[in-house]
Amino acid sequence: MPGAAGAAGAPERLPAPGMWATYRMIAGMWIRSTLAYRASFAMMLVGNFLVTAFDFVVIALMFSQVRSLGGYSFAEVAFLYGTSTTAFGLANALLGSIDKLGARVRDGTLDTLLVRPAPVLAQVAADRFGLQRLGRLLQGLLVLGGSLLALDVHWTVLKALLVPMMLLSGTAIFCAVFVAGAAFQFWAQDAAEVQSAFTYGGQTLLQYPPTVFAKDMVRGVTYVFPLAFVNWLPALYVLGRPYPLALPAWFAFTPPLVAALCLILAGQAWRVGVRSYRSTGS
């Protein structure tokens, strides 16, 4: 049916660009825009790196006073920190400013994106894209690299494969949280803070071992809001540590499934959000 009704004489239209092509175009425009202000760009990159590195400095300071945290060594906590920060850093670099959607909904500038022949999700995801966002990712990778050198773990092929798998599915889970949070902003435009509690808050939570938190908290992020699948479950398998909840060992390998499920749900929420978009008065 599509195409059949096309008006006679109208020029042939090529299919609209897809998600990734759109993302690259819009991100490219924003990079060019920020390059107009070079000094500010450099300062933001350094600032981003330092601010996020401060989280790790806090942990390092703690370990100058104690030998272990919730029964975990410095290298082990660093491993949790590195996996959490890298996964979140990657998701944040890709989708970080999607939480600005609420502002665009409020002031009606989302309209200008909706009349372009490209997926809105990709346009919003790439909105205000900046290379300075790589600061957090870089920092996470550095800590992760350091921890891998320092860890006293008996590596197996399975464990080695688990590390990249957890980074990828962790990124996907955080991306799903970003998208679902943004979808929610179609109804509640000031929900960005709630979203931050789950994204930034979740990242910080996962930087520490689950043993330092109350059982109910751990249950919550395992069974209700599946943040535990970002790194806790697979990472504890790598470290040879028991998970605080009685779960079979194979749960360490489920993150890709959980991530896929989260992405599907977030995608649905997004579609419902766009369709219920109301725009502003003028």
């Binding site: 096309g6 008006a7 109208a10 309209d111 200008t112 009349v115 372009r116 022949p117 003028s282």
Partner: peptide, 26 residues
Amino acid sequence: VAGLDPSRERTRMAQRIGVVFGQRTT
């Protein structure tokens, strides 16, 4: 519009229309 249902076929619609909002620039 041009045989399309605009909100259901939004991206295809966008290829065939031009929009100028006097109050906000694209």
